[in-house]
Nucleic acid binder design. Structure first.
Lengths: 196, 196
DNA sequence: CTTCAGTTGTACTGATAAGTACAGCATAGA
DNA sequence: TCTATGCTGTACTTATCAGTACAACTGAAG
């Protein structure tokens, strides 16, 4: 029903791409219009709140993606170590196919932080909470699980920073592999005393 | 000599503050002028290349600060474990007193990345190289030292992202403490098999 | 006290920003 | 086929953008 010419969900996907490429401030309405193929009329029809509502819609869409594709599978029944491995695979795949940009991370470091504070905060809290729960199921104690979850999510964000800073997209997957080995030592069969 | 009214180095320090608060794109010339107390005349007198030259000057100043205060001390004679501890202390102090913003990290995630690519790349490569060398002196093998250096610098950047995202400035120091404990296990007397 | 290089504020330019208004168009349901 | 709803492009407003031009001013050296 109501498929006239374009629909809001399609617009959100196109907007996500544009915000990733240009950031919030760099994505002017003319850039958005050109890259999404939507005129100003369509954009303000879908998003009466203007650019801010467009970005909020994108953040909501990305948040939902992670919730259903990463956080919930993390808590699914089965071997928690495998669930965690899955998390890393999906995370790597997501960012590799999206220009190595995490909009929440980029917004957190930029001026968008205040404007989108609650969405940003919720995204990371959800991720940390889900990973923390999975870690307790691997045998880690509650406090240690929390620390490992925070450090791992931070490590992923840091890996994105370094990959982009060095211009080495392949560095992301290597970093994620080491983060994974750290928190699921049973599967790898090594410990931190390994030198060299 | 030539102390008339203001000097370029003072301007660079003020500019650093403004770029940290507003980012590169958010720091319009009117904002810069208001926050630095310098008129457009002064700004374009000191930085004929405009805003880009202002930012390059700030990045150079920050890069020099880290080189003399962090990278070089890291390679100074003495217990490398203590040198590494010093690196974490100075790093924490730096970002805590500067709104939890690493301009290089923020620029790496934003649209400034291409414009300032070489400065960004050099900053992180220097840091990684210096830490890597210090780690080999603590007994880590060459490959392991490199990985640990990359992961630690990434971890610091990720800790900044998370601290800002959650609005918890104190989380930075806690994260840095754990990063430090990871790469200097001898001083802490524990290993990664510690659970709970 | 004069001189002059260096510093400063003001006024301007053309371009572009976000957002509004609205007439016209496409299409689904009747 | 008719019509109502929602989609779309164009033209517009007001504000701000980066950058330029330049006259006035400052203070150190002579």
């Amino acid at each position: 029903m109501a498929r006239t010419v374009a629909e809001r969900p399609d617009a959100v996907l196109a907007l996500a791409h544009t915000f990733r490429r240009h950031g919030y401030m760099g994505a002017s309405l003319s850039v958005i219009s050109a890259e999404t193929g939507l005129g100003k009329g369509s954009l303000y029809n879908f998003f009466p709140g203007g650019k801010e509502e467009m970005a909020q819609a994108v953040l909501a869409e990305v948040g939902a993606w992670f919730r259903t594709r990463v956080y919930e599978p993390l808590l699914a029944p089965g071997d928690p170590t495998e669930r965690i491995a899955e998390m890393f695979d999906r995370t790597a795949g997501y960012f590799e196919s999206r220009e190595l940009v995490c909009l929440f991370g980029a917004f957190a470091l930029g001026q968008e932080r205040e404007r989108f504070a609650s969405a940003i905060r919720e995204y990371f809290l959800e991720w940390i909470a889900a990973l923390e729960l999975a870690l307790t199921r691997t045998g880690h104690g509650p406090e240690r699980s929390h620390q490992l979850a925070v450090d791992t999510v931070a490590g992923i964000q840091g890996a994105l920073v370094i990959s982009r800073a060095l211009g080495e997209p392949e560095a992301l997957r290597a970093s994620l592999a080491r983060l994974r080995a750290r928190i699921t030592p049973a599967s790898g069969g090594h410990d931190s005393s390994q030198l060299g």
